[in-house]
């Protein structure tokens, strides 16, 4: 179980990125964190990953306070961050340096199979497409069998089709591994399709606005009415998070407008926003 207690981060340059964020993440749960820019989403993940130290509060995993990168916590970034001097297999096995070469090769092979890249082990990073590279990054993170996987807008740099594909893929991987996931995203559909619970953040300083429990079964059809309704609910929540009056569309706003009206890869009806519940 991952417990976040009053996590607060003020950077040395004075930026107040996150204020008193508390959340208890159950084992095997997928929590999506959505919100506009400046709401501390990435900071939240960096604190849990141990890449930054909280100014106040703490993150506790199974009773241990996380102050530095933890072996059972891994993170996937927006960009794949593969090491170009290693082959695909070398990248996937990067966190397994302690294993004997044979065991490592087996684990790597298995991980590549699971992300649909069996036989790609000998390729160079420069030979991969964007989607393939991100799959390799997912394999690299999962191969160490983390208890908690943090995802920082992992698919936002990909085209819509690849993104939908990888979201489904991530759901499958979750079904197999039962890894706890915290998914930071600005893609409302991504949150609606994947999450058990969605945390809506509000900016300046970043803090939690509301939590939305989702009872929908997986796998979820993107065009299902329940998912569409959820997406409308999320857009409304995001509007509230930015103190927008419901009459304004987030897509046309002129000031700080991080809310993207959900783009739909699979060509369903455009979502009508905003929605007043």
């Amino acid at each position: 179980m991952l417990e976040l207690q009053n996590l607060t981060k003020v950077y040395p340059n004075g930026v107040h990125a996150l204020e008193a964020f508390s959340l208890t993440v159950r084992e095997g749960e997928i929590v999506a964190v959505i919100g506009g820019s400046g709401c501390g989403k990435s900071t939240l993940l960096r604190l849990i990953a141990g890449l930054e130290q909280p100014s106040r509060g703490r993150a506790v995993l199974d009773g241990a306070t996380l102050t530095q990168p933890h072996p059972l916590v891994n993170i996937i970034f927006q960009e794949p961050r593969l090491l170009p001097w290693l082959t695909v297999a070398g990248n996937v096995g990067f966190g397994l340096a302690d294993l004997a070469a044979n065991d490592r090769a087996l684990r790597v092979e298995e991980a590549l199979l699971r992300v649909g890249l069996a036989g790609y082990g000998g390729r160079w990073v420069k030979e991969l497409s964007g989607g393939q590279a991100q799959r390799v990054a997912i394999a690299r993170a999962l191969v160490t069998r983390p208890e908690v996987l943090l995802l920082d807008e992992p698919f936002s740099a990909l085209d819509a089709l690849t993104r939908a594909d990888l979201q489904d893929h991530l759901a499958d991987l979750w079904a197999e591994s039962g890894t706890t996931m915290i998914l930071v995203t600005h893609d409302i559909e991504e949150a609606a399709v994947l999450a058990d619970r969605i945390v809506v953040m509000r900016p300046w300083p970043g803090r939690k606005l509301e939590e939305i429990e989702i009872a929908l079964k997986r796998p979820r059809e993107r065009t299902a009415p329940e998912v569409e309704a959820l997406k409308r609910q999320l857009v409304a929540a995001l509007n509230r998070s930015l103190d927008r009056s419901p009459g304004r569309s987030p897509g046309r706003s002129t000031d700080r407008s991080p809310v993207r009206a959900p783009e739909n890869a699979l060509g369903s009806e455009p979502v009508r926003v905003p929605f007043v519940p």
């Binding site: 001097w85 082959t87 297999a89 000998g122 160079w124 420069k126 030979e127």
Partner: peptide, 19 residues
């Protein structure tokens, strides 16, 4: 793995696409 963590001369069997 040698001293440097590189996929060295022996590594990839796949043909390089760039010619």
């Amino acid at each position: 793995m040698g001293f440097l963590d590189l996929a060295g001369a022996a590594a990839p069997a796949a043909a390089t696409k760039t010619c």
